[in-house]
Amino acid sequence: MATKPITRNTVIPGFGPTLGYTVFYLSLIVLLPLSALVVKTASLTWPEFIATVAAPRVVASYKVTFGAALAAAGVNALFGLLVAWVLVRYSLPGKRLIDALVDLPFALPTAVAGITLSSVYAANGWLGSILEPRGIKVAFTPLGIFVAMTFIGLPFVVRTVQPVLEELEEEIEEAAACLGANRWQTFRRVLLPELLPALLTGFALAFARGVGEYGSIIFIAGNMPMVSEITPLLIITKLEQYDYAGATAIATVMLLFSFLMLLTVNLLQKWSRRHAAR
């Protein structure tokens, strides 16, 4: 990582110490422990590694996990933006309470979330009893995984978009309106570019969280091999066999996937900001 600024045409102080501390703390808390993962994986030979991470069941679980996480993050991006918009722009009775409730998917232990979701969406649950007769089976299917991931990722988009929306200056919208833009045009041309970086951040975080999630999903997924088995569950399966190296191998692959995915989103974000600035 290059730590030298290319252009330091700013008078703001503190670049060295803040970046230094950031990198130091990141290394200590994240990179060093994660390196243990890679080192453990390295105890496998190359063919063993491939056999472990490319087994058909493992590959099927990648598809389920990453697919559901993408879908859930997408839904959260769309509806999270909407929720943030409603919470910031409109006045409603009880708005403050709703605002506060948005964080709860984080506070609720994941196992509780899973148990609750499966009780609500099972055939005999509040929502399941409405959905299932209409042919929508949620609990114990891949759809259940999507529901759990949507639940746990919900706060991310709302909470990243909300502060940006709150700090937006009125003038730009008014200017757009004065220049004859209608509401939709103002939103698309003026507001959305401003919100896009935060929206992408929220999307990336919700996605990342969904990929790694375990506790809430196992209660609602059904866990059928090849169909609704998520990758973290396979890691647990490996651990149950005292196969630490196999577990870390799958974890490393997941980590790599997520890393590339997040990096893509972050680069996209940089591009979108430059685009907006133009």
């Binding site: 499966s118 005999n124 196992i218």
Partner: peptide, 16 residues
């Protein structure tokens, strides 16, 4: 449904 633990299965059977 294949739960990951015995008590998870009991819940699936009894509660769900």
């Amino acid at each position: 449904v294949l739960d990951s633990g015995a008590r998870g299965s009991t819940t699936t059977f009894v509660q769900r």
